[in-house]
Structures are given as C-alpha cells and as structure tokens.
C-alpha cells in the first residue's frame, strides 16, 4: 500500500498545497470547527454535569464549577461503590470479556466466510454468493425486542442463561454479519492474482489464505474488529434480557442508576467512563488510517 506517498504526492501537485486564505478554505475550517463543537458539546455538558448535585441541576443550565454551582464528586464516587450508586468494576470486566470473546469468534468465522464468498462461487438452491452475503447481513434486520423470548428459551435449554458464555453466543449472531459485510468488500479489493500465484507455487487454498491473504487483510480486520467491538460493547438489550443477577454488563449496570429521581450527575459520569476504552480504539484505528494501512479495507 503506497497511498500515503501517493496522496502526499497528489496534494503537493494541487494548488491547495499553497495555503492561501480563500473563502473556500475559510468555509472549510468553519465547517470543521462547527462540527467539532457539535461533537464535543454533549461531552462537555456531561463533564460539567457529572460534578453537580441536585441543586446544581435544578438551578438551570450552568457550566462553570465554583463560579456558577458548587461542585460535588457524588456522581463519580457513586460509580465505585459510593453512596447513591453502584460498583461498576465487575460489570466493566464482564463487558470487556463478552465484547472481546464475541468479537474474536465473529471475526474468525466471518473472515473465513467472507473469503469464501469473495473467492469461490456457491450455490444453495436459488441462493448465489450475493444472496448468501445478504443472508448474513439480513440477520441484523430483525428488531431485537422480539428475539428476547426465543433467545431466552434457547439459552434456558442450553443452561446458559445469566452466563458470559450465553451472551457471547448471542453476540456472535449479532456481530458476525458485520464482520462478513466488511470483509467481503475487503477481500474483493485484494487482487486475485495474489491467490493464483500462491496456487501455482503449490499452496492449497487454506495455506494460501493463511500465508498470503491474511497478512494483507490486517487493515480490514481492524475495521471489522472496531465495528464488532462498538456494537458489542454498546448492546444493551440482550445484555439486559438474558441475564439475572450474576452476570451484569456495563450498560446494564449504568442504566441501573436511572431511577425515578434521575441522577444526572451519575449518568453523566458513567457516560464518560464507558466510552474511555473505545476512544483508545479510535486512536488505534486512526493510526492505521493515516498510515494508509486501511486503504482498501472497505472497497
């Protein structure tokens, strides 16, 4: 992949490379800054709200601690076993386990299936490759609400209710379609010549896949992995319906703070804390992106 150098060369050759304060350029920065403000706004508000108490909230919209309201650490302490709260440490670890477990399985199975769909022709009755791909994706169409009871009965029969393994099983069905979708497009963008050269060298398809294609597929795996982690980490509904008291995931533990007296402070603090690991992920993905490593990942 040489996109970085290419785009650098490209930009050097374009007139924009000499930054002049043209109206278009100003408009561009204005737009970027406006959008940034829009993106940041809820987080800033959550940050300041997380240091309020009931009086701080009912005094109306205020932003500056000490000056406009008296700060309180109640919101934060309530997340770690303090008064008026819950301890989210254990749910945090559970969430990490379920998200990673389900993501790894989904990506493994999804990548294999995607490679098959990209390189070979299949026919099951009337279904061709495109239909099979759509079959995978279509699993995400069903509204989750209605799956609550069937999944519940299924895990009941398997003895997996209220366990991490049960949640992982269900999440695989939710995440694999995403992995397949991303990876099919990705494999399609890797030239078939690579495979053919390997075959001529005497590799069978499995060896070819492992030795030749997979290393080239790393950026695609990053995108697919990111989507799996995001959708897994943020699922609330199944984590909520298929567990009782022992296995609690982070969103469920956080929502447990949403009582009739809505504690704006604790919910704000928890919103910030729950995205922390995923923001790290955003940095990782961006690194790949900027290195040009993702080039082709989604073509």
């Amino acid at each position: 992949m040489t996109d970085l150098t290419q785009s650098a060369a490209l930009s050097r050759s374009e007139p924009e490379a000499v930054p002049a304060l043209r109206p278009g350029l100003i408009a561009k920065y204005v737009f970027i800054l406006l959008w940034s403000a829009f993106v940041v706004f809820p987080f800033l508000w959550a940050l300041t709200t997380s240091f309020k108490d009931a009086n701080g909230v009912t005094n109306g919209a205020t932003w500056l601690p000490w000056i406009q309201y008296r700060p309180s650490t109640q919101g934060w302490s309530s997340l770690f076993g303090g008064a008026g709260g819950t301890d989210i440490t254990r749910p945090y670890l559970n969430s990490i386990a379920v998200t990673l477990g389900a993501s790894v399985i989904s990506i493994t199975l999804g990548t294999l299936a995607a490679y098959g769909l990209s390189r070979f022709t299949f026919r099951f009755g009337w279904m061709r490759n495109a239909d099979i791909t759509f079959f995978f994706i279509s699993q995400r169409i069903m509204p989750p609400i209605v799956l609550a009871i069937p999944f519940f009965l299924m895990l009941q029969a398997l003895g997996l209710l209220d366990t991490l393994a049960g949640l992982i099983l269900v999440y695989v069905a939710l995440l694999m379609p995403i992995a397949v979708w991303v990876m099919v497009d990705f494999f399609n963008s890797i030239p078939r010549g690579l495979d053919e050269m390997a075959w001529m060298d005497g590799c069978d398809p499995v060896t070819t896949f492992v030795r030749v294609i997979l290393p080239n597929a790393l950026p695609g795996l990053v995108v697919a992995g990111m989507f799996c982690v995001i959708f897994g980490w943020n699922d609330f509904f199944f984590a909520f319906t298929l567990t009782f008291t022992k296995t609690q995931l982070l969103p469920v533990a956080i929502v447990a703070l949403n009582s009739s007296v809505t504690p704006w402070w604790a919910l704000s603090a928890s919103a910030l804390i729950s995205i922390a690991p995923l923001v790290l992920l955003a940095f990782l993905v961006e690194r790949f992106l900027s290195k040009g490593g993702l080039a082709g990942a989604v073509r």
Partner: peptide, 23 residues
Amino acid sequence: FRVLFLVPMMTTPVIMSVIWRTI
C-alpha cells in the same frame, strides 16, 4: 479531527440518549 469525529459512534446509545434528554 479524524479521531474526534469518530468518537460519537463509540458511545452507548441508551446512555447518550439520557445525556441528550438533559441537553
């Protein structure tokens, strides 16, 4: 900016909705 623009997608909808309601 690239990282910043990615962040909203990382948040849990059920929790962010509560924050938005307060906004």
